[in-house]
């Protein structure tokens, strides 16, 4: 189960492309894709298999001066979606 202590990394073979202010993420192996806004793209790029989701939420919180609880909830919700689409995996 995904928690703030989870550590997540991008799956090998996932392709990304910036377009406007958004990031297109495609999993060729699964034929699935999603489009991330700037905040989503920031989170996605921080999923390096080292930082926990709590670490990432704190970075997001500092960068956007958002409440920590909201940043935690946003990170968890986004990573759930990324897991569902098979573009990231838990380390």
């Amino acid at each position: 189960m995904l928690t703030l202590d989870s550590v997540v990394r991008t799956v090998a073979g996932v392709a990304t492309r910036e377009s406007g202010n958004e990031l297109v993420v495609v999993s060729p192996a699964q034929g699935k894709y999603l489009v991330l806004n700037q905040t989503g793209a920031t989170v996605f790029r921080l999923l390096d298999g080292k930082a926990s989701l709590q670490d990432i939420a704190m970075q997001l919180c500092q960068k956007h001066q958002a409440p920590l609880e909201k940043a935690q909830a946003d990170v968890l919700a986004l990573v759930e979606q990324l897991l569902e689409r098979g573009v990231v995996s838990e380390s």
Partner: peptide, 25 residues
């Protein structure tokens, strides 16, 4: 729709080629 959304949807509708990581870029 945003250019990113259009890009994602069109890549998803590019048969065969969209299954190859090396041709993704």
């Amino acid at each position: 729709i945003s250019s990113a959304q259009a890009l994602a949807e069109l890549v998803a509708n590019s048969p065969v080629i969209n299954a190859d990581v090396d041709r993704a870029a």
